[in-house]
């Protein structure tokens, strides 16, 4: 915690206005996103956030991260927002992708090696990582067809600004269930949850 006092406080953007109630509200929005994949959820408590970190992503980080969650940051976030995240969450930074409980990626076109993510093990599958990836645009529109728990029938989503390699990785993720990683795609204040249960229709998109 002393590490925090060494951070130049005057340069840091403030976090939530009301840390208790804002994080409660954001959590419910994230919960909604995870429970109803294919529904795009708007986050409506957006802290100021530095550099490449969008308001939606910052809100998720401040809601979910703390001393108990090692976090891996993509280089852009590491360079500009690690003080902000350390100060507001206390989450330990890790350089090892596989050791991270949360992974924050500023640009969906530049994904880390998703095959390195923690997937949990058969007895403790919940130890799989949660990845938060910023993309340019999220729409309910023809693109990828999703099925799975939380979706009545199917839903079509279209994502701009996400590397093509993500989709085969998501497909492979489903094959390993219950192991796997869980994904939150964020575009500005909009969030789409892709839990490891998501199935992609073959040949779509």
């Amino acid at each position: 915690m002393n590490q925090q006092t060494r951070i130049g406080l005057q340069n840091l953007a403030p976090g939530f206005k009301d840390p208790q109630l804002d994080s409660q509200r954001v959590f419910r929005q994230v919960l909604q996103a995870m429970a109803r994949p294919g529904h795009i959820v708007a986050i409506d408590r957006l802290p100021e956030a530095p550099g490449p970190l969008g308001g939606g992503t910052a809100a998720l980080a401040l809601t979910l991260l703390d001393l108990d969650t090692p976090v891996w940051l993509s280089p852009e976030v590491r360079d500009t927002a690690s003080d902000y995240l350390s100060f507001h969450t206390g989450a330990p930074l890790t350089a090892e992708l596989g050791a991270a409980a949360f992974v924050l990626v500023a640009d969906g076109n530049k994904l880390p090696d998703l095959s390195q993510l923690a997937l949990g093990d058969a007895e403790y599958p919940e130890r799989g990582a949660t990845i938060i990836v910023q993309v340019e645009r999220l729409r309910i529109a023809p693109g990828r067809r999703l099925r799975g728990p939380g979706i009545l029938g199917h839903v079509d989503i279209s994502v701009d600004g996400l590397a093509e390699e993500f989709w085969p990785a998501l497909h492979a993720n489903r094959q390993r269930f219950p192991l796997g990683f869980d994904t939150l795609l964020v575009a500005g204040d909009l969030v789409l949850g892709l839990p490891r249960t998501i199935m992609l229709d073959p040949g779509e998109g």
């Binding site: 959590f27 809601t63 979910l64 703390d66 219950p178 839990p195 490891r196 249960t197």
Partner: peptide, 13 residues
């Protein structure tokens, strides 16, 4: 926060 993270994983599995 700990409980919320647990709930999200419970929903995912």
């Amino acid at each position: 926060r700990m409980l919320r993270r647990v709930i999200l994983k419970a929903v995912a599995i």
